[in-house]
């Protein structure tokens, strides 16, 4: 149907002697939400880090728009169009919310367009706009997550990588954040979502990869995985 934006081909990652990713392959299609789910230590964050250039795979290929990007530095990938909201939010705690957002557009020079994107982020997150002059470290966890996503959007990426946006947040807030993720996706953004909360992730995703101890255990349409008995038993706790 639609073209492949990002692809993993038989990717292996080692942390010293530990074989963290064992020949993982999958594709993220343009305009879709792809979710990586799995238990702790399954390799979800490692996969995302290999995507965003934070670590170099020991073998295999990572392709973005058909070009190999494994081993490319993280800052270059941002320039190429890969936006990343790191795990644990990773906001700049001593800076104001506005400074956080402008730093997201750090590599861009087009001031007018940056302003437009700022307005867009305010539209997505009215809460963020209210807190513009507040020091980011004093925000609640949910608001910090919104700032982190907003900041990643500010680089005007073609694909957005989200690392556990629900981490440590209240269910109500999680729902709100997921609504926004869907909204951003509807605007045409391709999203790779790493989640512990498999049920929620499968509900909003188009495709899913289930990781288990470093390999892609199952992958397919999110709706099918959601209906499959084995997946429900293993990951959704039923």
């Amino acid at each position: 149907m639609s073209e492949t934006l990002l692809e993993f081909k038989n990717v292996n990652v080692h942390y010293g002697a530990i074989h963290a990713l064992k020949g993982v392959s999958f594709q993220a299609k343009k305009g879709e939400i792809l979710t990586l789910i799995g238990a702790n230590g399954a390799g979800k964050s490692t996969t995302l880090r290999a995507m965003s250039g934070m670590l170099k795979p020991s073998s295999g290929e990572v392709l973005f728009k058909g070009k190999r990007i494994d081993g490319t530095r993280a800052d270059h990938l941002v320039a190429m169009g890969i936006g990343h909201a790191p795990e644990g939010r990773g906001i700049f705690a001593n800076m104001t919310v506005e400074e956080n957002l402008t730093l997201g557009a750090y590599l861009r020079k087009d001031k007018q367009e940056i302003q437009k994107d700022l307005e867009h982020v305010y539209e997505l997150f009215p809460r963020v706009k209210e807190r513009l002059w507040q020091v980011a470290g004093t925000l609640s966890g949910g608001e910090q997550q919104m700032v982190a996503i907003g900041r990643a959007l500010m680089s005007r990426p073609e694909i957005l990588l989200l690392d556990e946006p629900s981490l440590g947040l209240a269910p109500q807030i999680i729902e709100k954040i997921f609504e926004i993720i869907v909204k951003v996706n509807k605007e045409g953004m391709t999203i790779v979502l790493v989640e512990q909360n498999a049920l929620l992730a499968l509900e909003i995703a188009h495709h899913a990869v289930v990781l288990e101890t470093g390999s892609a255990h199952t992958q397919g349409k999110a709706s099918e995985l959601l209906a499959s008995d084995t997946i429900r038993k293993a990951y959704l706790g039923e």
Binding site: A79, F92, G104, Y106, L107, A152
Partner: peptide, 14 residues
């Protein structure tokens, strides 16, 4: 300043 605040986040913003 971004490097001081959070190196991973700084890298993620380019």
């Amino acid at each position: 300043l971004a490097v001081r605040e959070d190196e991973i986040a700084a890298e993620a913003t380019g």
